[in-house]
Computed example of a mutant assay.
Amino acid sequence: MEHDNGRHRMTDEEIETAQLGAAQQVNGQVALSAYDPRWPAVFEREAALIGARFAEGAGASGFRLEHVGSTSVPGLPAKPVIDMLLIVPDPADEASYVPALAALGYEVAVREPDWFEHRCLRKRDLDPSAGSANLHVLPVGCPENDRMLLFRDRLRTHPGDRELYAETKRELALREWKYTQNYADAKTEVVEEILARAART
């Protein structure tokens, strides 16, 4: 699990508690890849599959799916993991969407009931360009939805902020981390700086 957010830095215990099963440890540097132009197509493929399942009545109604995270920003280095945001009425109502996603190979990997009922589903063996996908599920009206999309759109349209974030990622990736979430939390200061600029425009 990794998500840049506006809350406190997660402790090891909080990271381990949120994970279903043993939390995967990095215990070293974070491997970043150069931007791959195939990533948007991978998202579109997954979005079409998910949309088809939900249209069949096999999953959540009134859902919204967005490509988020670094793979959604052309030119930005990233871990080769496609991050997606699924907005549903109630993430805690897993019966309304998990079966449809499970049929496509997604498994619930993270539950955080104390943080907007956040769920993260993971799909492995995704594509030659991206080994896996993280599907973050949050509720309609959640402020974190707006933050994710504002940050993505800011980086897409402002080269200076995109390069600042890229350099921050490269520098932090060279350090040693126990969990990937520790690396994500270390980016909080620059994320908030960029979001503050975005909010003023």
Rank of each mutant, 00 (worst) to 15 (best):
R64D: 01
G62N: 05
G57Q: 10
A58N: 08
E66M: 00
G69C: 05
A60H: 08
E66P: 02
L76M: 08
G69Q: 05
F63T: 02
G57M: 04
I82M: 15
R64T: 03
L65P: 02
V73I: 10
L76P: 05
P77E: 09
E66C: 01
L85C: 15
L65M: 06
H67F: 06
A58L: 10
A55L: 14
F63G: 04
A78S: 15
L76K: 04
V73N: 03
G57P: 07
A55F: 12
L86M: 12
D83L: 14
V68C: 00
V68A: 00
L85D: 11
G75T: 00
V88T: 09
A60R: 04
E56K: 15
A55I: 07
A58V: 05
L76V: 03
F63D: 02
D83K: 09
T71Y: 12
A55G: 14
S61Q: 03
L76A: 03
P80G: 08
A55R: 15
G69P: 06
A60G: 11
D83M: 12
R64F: 01
S70L: 02
A78P: 01
V68Q: 00
G62E: 00
M84E: 14
P80R: 15
V81C: 04
G57I: 07
G75E: 07
G69L: 07
